[in-house]
Design a protein around this nucleic acid. Structure first.
Lengths: 122, 122
DNA sequence: TCTTATTGATTACAAGCGTAATCCTATTAC
DNA sequence: GTAATAGGATTACGCTTGTAATCAATAAGA
């Protein structure tokens, strides 16, 4: 379950998180066209995700329907934690501070987060 | 310059960001002992970082002194942006929201960030 | 001067990744 | 019934990464 999902694999997961279950064909059609992947590539990635138990498949006639086993939420929180631990000693504040310093935060970001934090304390 | 620094390489960069210039030996001694790396491993990584132009070296007698070319700030902001773009559509708020939802934020985090944001608006 | 210890450079090597092509089998169209 | 097709499984292949071992040159010590 904890097999680290690669970048390419992640693109496939996004499709299945958006909608599932799907056939390999469906997934191939929905993957970000930016990638320009062949159907075969997508099938390979589905196979690797199966091996990692990040997804499961069930037979539907002569093909499979794929669906995620790992929740998107778990994935994004895990990845976020990894980054924050690796780069900011596990604390979120320096991340926000760095982005702010670089003007990577919009006024909207700032008020959204403020509102969110206020909510949290309530 | 934009050659993506790997995880192992990053551990070496951290040493040089902390103190530079240093000899390969110095770096090897300072790398997180958790890694349990041989001196050779560290030298390989220094070589790769040189090839990626992430660091530079100047001769000092019969050995080199290594120093970072990439600033830590640029690195962390770049990595953070990548994650946020990849997982949260480029917006910081969902990251904070996800962590909050999972109780990954301490009360201290929350007040720190609030203070920081208030500062930003000033 | 001959040997040994340093230190950088070169080579190694398996696993993971990105990106398929090919093979095999079942099915569908003629 | 035979040929083309669709779909999964297997194999491929070069690049990067993690992790060194080995080689070559030089300096230092005996």
């Amino acid at each position: 379950m904890a097999e680290r999902i690669s970048d390419a694999e992640h693109a496939v997961m996004e499709v299945l998180w958006e909608e599932a279950p799907l056939t390999a064909q469906d997934v191939a059609e929905r993957v970000d066209p930016e990638r320009g992947w062949s159907t075969n590539t997508v099938k390979t990635l589905l196979g690797r995700l199966l091996a990692k138990s990040a997804i499961a498949h069930e037979e539907q006639g002569r093909r499979y329907l794929y669906r995620p086993l790992v929740a998107r939420d778990d994935y994004v929180v895990g990845e976020s934690r990894r980054l924050i631990d690796r780069l900011f000693g596990g604390r979120l504040t320096p991340l926000v501070a760095h982005l702010a310093e670089r003007d990577e935060l919009t006024a909207q970001d700032i008020s959204e987060i403020e509102a969110l934090l206020k909510e949290l304390k309530a």
